[in-house]
């Protein structure tokens, strides 16, 4: 069975790029446009990994990570944050919240795949 990855970003182009890249590698991808959307979509199905942006309307990435880590089913799920900030503090907040790894935007498809493989095996 192919592994399922939840991609959360408010930018449709980033979602599409993530989606396209991961699907080509044989992963199944669920898309969500923000944290709240992600939580509503994730409720129904188990995912093997979450990739989320940090800056998002409604519920941002850090809040999403916190919410996921509080849920026993996602306690050990790898979560990758897409950091766009040139500051360290956002990344630290994400790490604090329980993010497994991060990718700094802009990134290339190969970098995304490398990170996903590093965390999912």
């Amino acid at each position: 069975m192919s592994k399922k990855i939840l991609a959360v970003d408010d930018s449709a182009s980033i979602r599409q790029m993530v989606c396209f890249t991961l699907q080509r590698e044989g992963y199944e991808v669920i898309e969500a446009s923000d944290g709240r959307d992600a939580l509503s979509k994730i409720g129904a199905s188990a995912v093997n990994m979450v990739i989320t942006d940090l800056h998002m309307p409604n519920m941002n990435g850090v809040e999403l990570i916190q919410a996921l880590r509080a849920n026993p089913s996602f306690k050990f799920t790898p979560i990758v944050m897409l950091t766009t900030e040139s500051h360290q503090d956002k990344k630290d907040m994400g790490k604090q919240a329980g993010a497994t790894g991060w990718i700094v935007k802009p990134f290339k498809p190969e970098q995304l795949i490398a990170v996903v493989k590093r965390l999912l095996g």
């Binding site: 306690k75 050990f76 799920t77 790898p78 979560i79 790490k95 329980g98 993010a99 497994t100 493989k117 590093r118 965390l119 999912l120 095996g121």
Partner: peptide
């Protein structure tokens, strides 16, 4: 280590 969802095996 496991608390942030890391699996050492892929590493």
């Amino acid at each position: 280590l496991f608390q942030n969802g890391t699996n050492p095996v892929p590493l």
